[in-house]
C-alpha cells in the first residue's frame, strides 16, 4: 500500500514536470527517464540473471542506427522506434545464444567487445550509414517547447512500459527461474529450468527497450555518429546506477538513474575537462564503500557515527 502511494506520487510528479518547468529541466528529466530505461533493462540480465553484461552500448547504438536509417528513408518516427527496439532484440537473441554459455570475465569481455565491432562495421559502411561523418535525422516541424514535451512524454511511456515488464517478469516463472540461475546455474538446470532459453530471453529483454531508447535518442538529438552511440560509458552507466541502489530490486534502477544523473550533472558543471575522471572516482567510491548500494545504508546508524 505504502509503496503504491509513493509510486503514484512519483508518477504524478513526473507528469507535472513538463507543465511547471522550463525546457532545461525537461531535457534533464527526459535524460533521467532514458537512464532509468537503461538501468531497468540491464537489470534483466545483470540483476536478475547475474550475468555481468557490458552490452548496453551495443543495443543502444544498434537501435539508434536502425531507427535513424528508418527515419531517413521515410518511416514515421514512432514506428522507427519500434523497429529500433526490435532490431536490437533480434540481435541480442542471436548474440545471446552465442555468448551466454560463457561465464564471468569471458562473458563480460565478449559483451563489451561487441560494441567495438559494431562501431567499426557502421564506420566502414559509409554508403549506408555515413560512416564516421554521422547521420542527420529529419527535424520535426514543430516548436521547440512542444518538441521538448513530446519527447518527454514519449520517453515517459517507454520507461513506464519497461517498468511494467520488469514488474511482470519478476513475479512470473521467468523472473523466478532467473533468480535460480543467478544462484546456481547447474542446479537450476537440474531443477528443470531451460537455462539457455531463460538467459537468452533475459538478454533479449535487456536489448529491446535499450534499442527503442536508442532510436528515440536519434530522433531527439537529430544527429548520431558511431563514436557517440557506441560509447563505452553507455555500458558502464547502467551498472553504476543499479549498483547505487542494490541489484535485483525493482524500483532501485529508477532511483539509481535519478541519483546518477544528478551526480553526473553536478560533475559536468564543475569539472568540464575532468568529468569522466570524476565519474571514475564516483564508481571507485561506490564499489569500495557501498558495494551493496546506497539504499542498504542504515542512515540512523550512519548519522550516529557521524555525530559522535
Amino acid at each position: 500500500m505504502k509503496t503504491k502511494l509513493v509510486g503514484l506520487f512519483v508518477i504524478v510528479l513526473l507528469l507535472l514536470i513538463p507543465i511547471i518547468s522550463n525546457n532545461y529541466v525537461i531535457r534533464l528529466a527526459t535524460m533521467m527517464l532514458m537512464y532509468s530505461v537503461f538501468a531497468m533493462s540491464w537489470n534483466f540480465i545483470g540483476g536478475m540473471a547475474g550475468y555481468p553484461s557490458f552490452a548496453t552500448a551495443s543495443f543502444f547504438g544498434l537501435g539508434a542506427y536502425a531507427g535513424a536509417l528508418c527515419q531517413v528513408n521515410g518511416v514515421p518516427m514512432f514506428l522507427a522506434w519500434v523497429i529500433g527496439g526490435l532490431v536490437s532484440a533480434v540481435f541480442a537473441w542471436v548474440l545471446g545464444l552465442a555468448i551466454l554459455h560463457l561465464k564471468g570475465h569471458y562473458f563480460a569481455i565478449a559483451s563489451l567487445i561487441v560494441a567495438e565491432v559494431l562501431r567499426e562495421v557502421i564506420n566502414s559502411a559509409t554508403g549506408i550509414t555515413g560512416g564516421g561523418m554521422g547521420l542527420n535525422i529529419p527535424v520535426l516541424r514543430m516548436g521547440v517547447d512542444a518538441q521538448a514535451r513530446l519527447f518527454y512524454f514519449s520517453m515517459f511511456v517507454i520507461a513506464l512500459v519497461t517498468l511494467a515488464v520488469s514488474a511482470y517478469v519478476s513475479g512470473r516463472p521467468l523472473g523466478f527461474g532467473l533468480k535460480c540461475i543467478k544462484q546456481n546455474e547447474d542446479a537450476a538446470g537440474m531443477t528443470g529450468i531451460n537455462t539457455t532459453i531463460y538467459k537468452t530471453t533475459a538478454f533479449t529483454l535487456s536489448a529491446v527497450f535499450t534499442g527503442g531508447a536508442g532510436a528515440f535518442y536519434a530522433s531527439w538529438v537529430n544527429y548520431i555518429d558511431p563514436e557517440d552511440v557506441f560509447e563505452i560509458l553507455i555500458s558502464i552507466k547502467p551498472i553504476v546506477m543499479v549498483l547505487m541502489c542494490g541489484a535485483g530490486a525493482l524500483v532501485g534502477p529508477v532511483i539509481g538513474a535519478g541519483l546518477f544523473l544528478f551526480l553526473e550533472e553536478l560533475v559536468w558543471r564543475n569539472f568540464l575537462t575532468f568529468h569522466v575522471g570524476m565519474l571514475g572516482l564516483m564508481v571507485v567510491f561506490l564499489v569500495i564503500f557501498l558495494p551493496t548500494g546506497l539504499l542498504s545504508v542504515d542512515y540512523r546508524k550512519f548519522l550516529k557515527k557521524v555525530v559522535r
Binding site: 545483470g46 555481468p52 564471468g104 570475465h105 563480460a108 558502464i236 551498472i239 553504476v240 549498483l243 575537462t273 575532468f274 569522466v276 575522471g277 570524476m278 565519474l279 571514475g280 572516482l281 564516483m282 564508481v283 571507485v284 561506490l286 564499489v287 569500495i288 558495494p291
Partner: peptide, 22 residues
C-alpha cells in the same frame, strides 16, 4: 564478483586516463 572488480578497475581507468588527458 566479476561485476565489482571490473567496475572498479574501469572506474580507476576513467580517472587515471582522464588525468593523463588533462
Amino acid at each position: 564478483p566479476v561485476l565489482i572488480t571490473l567496475s572498479l578497475t574501469f572506474g580507476l581507468d576513467l580517472f587515471l586516463n582522464n588525468s593523463l588527458l588533462v
